[in-house]
Nucleic acid binder design. Sequence first.
DNA 1: ACGCTATTTATACACTTGCATAACAACGCC
DNA 2: GGCGTTGTTATGCAAGTGTATAAATAGCGT
Lengths: 216, 216
Amino acid sequence: MNDAPPRRKFRREGEERRRQDLIEATLDCVAEYGLEGATVRAIARRAGVTAGLIRHYFPNKEELLQATYATIVGRMTEQAKAALAMDNASPRRRLAAFVEANLTPPVIDARIFSLWAGFIGRATHDPALAAAHRVGYLGFRDELEALVAEVLAAEDQVADKAQTRAHAIAINGILDGLWIEGCLADDLFGPRELAGIAISTVEALLRLKPEREETP
Amino acid sequence: MNDAPPRRKFRREGEERRRQDLIEATLDCVAEYGLEGATVRAIARRAGVTAGLIRHYFPNKEELLQATYATIVGRMTEQAKAALAMDNASPRRRLAAFVEANLTPPVIDARIFSLWAGFIGRATHDPALAAAHRVGYLGFRDELEALVAEVLAAEDQVADKAQTRAHAIAINGILDGLWIEGCLADDLFGPRELAGIAISTVEALLRLKPEREETP
DNA sequence: ACGCTATTTATACACTTGCATAACAACGCC
DNA sequence: GGCGTTGTTATGCAAGTGTATAAATAGCGT
């Protein structure tokens, strides 16, 4: 008569490890089924735990989603900044590396895009998200603006402040736009085609000399 | 003892009219609460009908959403193409007008963006939406490619096919990227600033002569 | 003026969702 | 090795979801 189902075995994990696992599971779910498919049960199944556990690490689902969003934003900016760290290279090369880093995997990634779209769509109604986006955007643009100023200085161009700002806005737009297309339809482009197009465009915008003229 | 609630009065509408009303109501709901807020009941309430009626015009909710998406895609491309209709102007001016049309109201609009974001997030996993996006994108890009070819021809530049394609991809990216920023944070930019930046960038990309040189 | 029929309402159903709670067991500590 | 802490499971619930179905009525053809 003992038809009581055997209780599931489990292991205790470290707090940080579990949180990270849950976030990763959320990313997987969003990638596969979209934001709407990222239910607590689906996430838990993916993470190999039961649904209730989520509430033990996050006060509610919303916070898990925000933590997930913060994770990918951090991951992306980290990738981009890594490209800036090449201190020995010329400003022009660093700009090119920066552009390329933003338009190749792992930044070009359908999973990330799916999550980004889900969140950014909410930014219109959710002031907190709108503010988060703004901070990230302006930070990114400032970085870009500094880089542009360096490049122009190295090329002996007058770096008008307004002009530099405009350039940064434009480059940021190019990166955003091509990033989207790359995430949505990478099969339409060659492996490094988007990066190449972006670099050409940026160099034309900054009126850099067209070809290899590093050492006159 | 007659506590039977009085049945709601209603009017019969023409089929096409009702379908359009339901689509419009869906647009409102998505714009206001996001895709997740566009439930059949919310949509029906918005349209001033009861939920069951939706199923009388659409076999299921999914089809209503697809019809809605098709509607906004059509509306956006229609707006953009209208700017191309200035037949008497020079290719260069028409390109500038096209760019400007895509980066000023009513194309720059938080509501439209909200809709776009909601749907595009699904396009990663929903094949039907992905296909819809792709035809829209490629159609837009083809239009752009033809325009670029005209401009280059008028400027006596050799119009390499691959180069023209690359230019169109780049311009499309610029438009997308700046469109997003404009929709999300129009207060960060002057009224026509984004359009101006985009036009400058495009002209630099196509290596057009910098200033007013229309009549040498 | 009166039915006919298709549009519209009303109600119900099966299912999913996020969240709350209680029982349980893995693991560190003495 | 027993024990307490707490990470983890199991179960339940109320609200909301899309959909199915039947009843009602608006408005047209006659």
